[in-house]
C-alpha cells in the first residue's frame, strides 16, 4: 500500500475502441495499482510527456486499430530519446496479429497481451518485470 505501482494506460492514435483499456485499467486498480488513464486518441508525444510527468513504472498501450506497427515503435523511441525507457516497462494489448508480435518486441515493447488473456497474467507480468 505505501508504494503502489503507477501505470499509464493510454490509447494511441485514432482508435475509438476503449472497452479493453477500461477493463485493464480497472483490473490494475483492483490489483492495488495507481492507474493514470488519459482517454482516447493520444499522440506518441502526449503519451511520452504524460509518462514523464506522472513518473509511471509502466506504460500500457491499448490498440485495436491495426496501426500498432507504426505507432508503438514511435512511442518506444521517444521514451528512449527522453532517457526514461530504462526505467519504464512498456506493454501493449488489443487486437494485434501473432505475426506482428516478434517485431514489436524487437522494437522494445516488452510484452503483448491479445484478446482472451486473463488480466491476472498481465498483473503478474507487471509485478515480476518492473524496471525500477
Amino acid at each position: 500500500m505505501d508504494k503502489p505501482i503507477r501505470v499509464l494506460v493510454a490509447k494511441p492514435g485514432l482508435d475509438g475502441h476503449d472497452r479493453g483499456a477500461k477493463v485493464i485499467a480497472r483490473a490494475l486498480r483492483d490489483a492495488g495499482m495507481e492507474v493514470v488513464y488519459t482517454g482516447l486518441r493520444q499522440t506518441p508525444e502526449q503519451i511520452v510527456q504524460t509518462a514523464i510527468q506522472e513518473d509511471v513504472d509502466v506504460v500500457a498501450l491499448s490498440i485495436l486499430s491495426g496501426a500498432h506497427n507504426h505507432l508503438l515503435p514511435k512511442i518506444v523511441n521517444r521514451l528512449k530519446e527522453e532517457g526514461v525507457y530504462d526505467e519504464v516497462l512498456v506493454l501493449a494489448g488489443g487486437v494485434i496479429p501473432d505475426d506482428d508480435i516478434p517485431g514489436l518486441k524487437e522494437a522494445g515493447i516488452e510484452a503483448v497481451f491479445t484478446p482472451g488473456t486473463p488480466t491476472g497474467v498481465t498483473i503478474n507480468f507487471i509485478k515480476e518485470n518492473l524496471k525500477k
Partner: peptide
C-alpha cells in the same frame, strides 16, 4: 485494493 483510477487528464 489501495489502487485508483486517476482520470482527470482525460
Amino acid at each position: 485494493s489501495g489502487g485508483s483510477i486517476l482520470g482527470d487528464r482525460i
